[in-house]
């Protein structure tokens, strides 16, 4: 049981974070809080990817020829998820940028960032 928890706790963490982000996106009324929920959602997936790249006893994935005569993959952590997540972080930053710009436009039009008030105005 403890082995299971210690072996898979990274998945548990990312599931909890995704649900927190999802709750923020769906249940909160303020558009800014929805945006923060979306951010948490994206960042939890990035954490998940990075966590699967780690290895027990692995070191930084920079080849050091003085250490070993031959390169053994088991000594280095997997660099591919890190590289993929660099791109995903950029995507997350771009999403936040566009969302904030849209929020400024919405605030300028409606004067509020609460979703129910905006929907009230739209219904009329």
């Amino acid at each position: 049981m403890m082995e299971f928890i210690f072996g898979t706790f990274n998945y548990g963490i990312y599931v909890v974070l995704i649900l927190i982000g999802f709750y923020g996106m769906m249940a909160k009324n303020n558009l800014m809080k929805k945006l923060i929920g979306m951010n948490i959602f994206q960042w939890s997936i990035i954490l998940f990817y990075i966590s699967i790249g780690s290895k027990k006893g692995g070191t930084v994935p920079v080849v050091d020829p003085s250490l070993h005569p031959a390169i053994r993959a088991v000594d280095y952590i997997n660099p591919l998820p890190h590289v993929l997540m660099l791109t995903a972080i950029v995507v997350g930053v771009a999403t936040t940028g566009i969302a904030l710009a849209l929020l400024i436009l919405i605030y300028r039009t409606y004067g509020t960032l609460e979703e129910d008030e905006i929907l009230e105005v739209l219904k009329k």
Binding site: V93, A101, I104
Partner: peptide, 17 residues
């Protein structure tokens, strides 16, 4: 590119466009 875009995001958001 990243430097230019980050700076322009900051300036646009602070001056509200």
């Amino acid at each position: 590119t990243v430097m230019a875009v980050m700076l322009s995001i900051f300036v646009d958001l602070v001056t509200a466009g």
